[in-house]
Write a protein that binds this DNA or RNA. Structure first.
Lengths: 168, 168
DNA sequence: TATTGTTATACTCTATAACTATA
DNA sequence: TATAGTTATAGAGTATAACAATA
């Protein structure tokens, strides 16, 4: 860019672009692998990963939604696809009749286990191969801080969500 | 994750997830701003940015496609939308009758200039605010290396592109 | 009245393949 | 024959709003 950009230094701008490109390429590669290896979207993979990581293999829809960028309806859609393939099941929560509990099935665990090695391998090849140990530590440090900051920062300032009163 | 993951250390896995989350959140925030402030998709913003950055404000479709993840038809689609809004124009290349030259209009430059400050501000607030100078340098170093590596690595190994013979 | 979740709907974006035209 | 680009088409994904049910 030829101009000062009124707010970002050249190095900042470069880092920003690099981050976007790396994120985009990684996402693309990983997405394609998951699609090919297991006919899974990245979101579906994340859902399975979250569930498998859970001690009992189950989570409420709301908890599943936490940390995912998507809308509720989007989650319902993706969960619906996984249910159709019998990789997960849906059942009403005993505690709260409004809630829905999502549980990984054996088939779900199997598919996840089958897909994970290639996934991890892709990530290692693309992301970590060109790194030195110092890089990893540095990256973890920075990204951890940034992530915390982003989580604490309201992503959309002008979107009060209809039907929900936020104090302020 | 509770397991060794056969290929990635815990720290690597953490860094990978952090990268994906940060990239995703940043993309989301920036996307929303561009949409609100200028009714632009991120791809459209990138197209404008590329053109504005060019000395004469113009580029061939093929050059524009370089570095973008998308298919040709996807680019045609996005370019078509910008043309409809008269933010860019399309004209045949004098050098090569097959090529199409895309040029930013005054309106395109204006919109880009109007949208850029907020864009940059978002990036600064979300990405750089929680950083120290050491962080920036570290991030630039790592991401630069990773980006080079990714560019050199064929993203999709099993996709020879129909109608094109690659040596090897 | 607030929360949880689903559904209907519309829309955006992307990719594949077929096609035209020029080199 | 290879390259540049468009178009037709189809599919995936997302979001909004309306809805139902429980707390």
């Amino acid at each position: 860019m030829g101009e000062p950009e009124a707010g970002l230094s050249g190095e900042q701008l470069g880092a920003y672009f690099a981050l976007m490109e790396v994120g985009s390429l990684l996402q693309y590669a990983v997405d394609e692998h998951l699609r090919t290896a297991g006919d899974l979207s990245y979101v579906q993979f994340q859902i399975l990963a979250r569930l498998v990581d859970e001690p009992e293999g189950r989570l409420r829809m709301t908890d599943l939604a936490d940390g995912m960028v998507h809308s509720r309806s989007g989650l319902t859609y993706q969960v619906g696809l996984l249910v159709k393939r019998e990789l997960i099941t849906r059942s009403p929560s005993p505690d709260d009749e409004r809630s829905v509990i999502v549980t990984v099935t054996g088939a779900g665990r199997e598919l996840f286990a089958r897909v994970l090695p290639g996934h991890v391998d892709d990530v290692r090849r693309l992301l970590f191969e060109p790194m030195r140990d110092g890089d990893l530590a540095a990256l973890s440090g920075v990204l951890g801080r940034v992530r915390e900051h982003m989580r604490a920062t309201p992503p959309r300032s002008a979107k009060p969500r209809p039907g929900r009163n936020r104090a302020g």
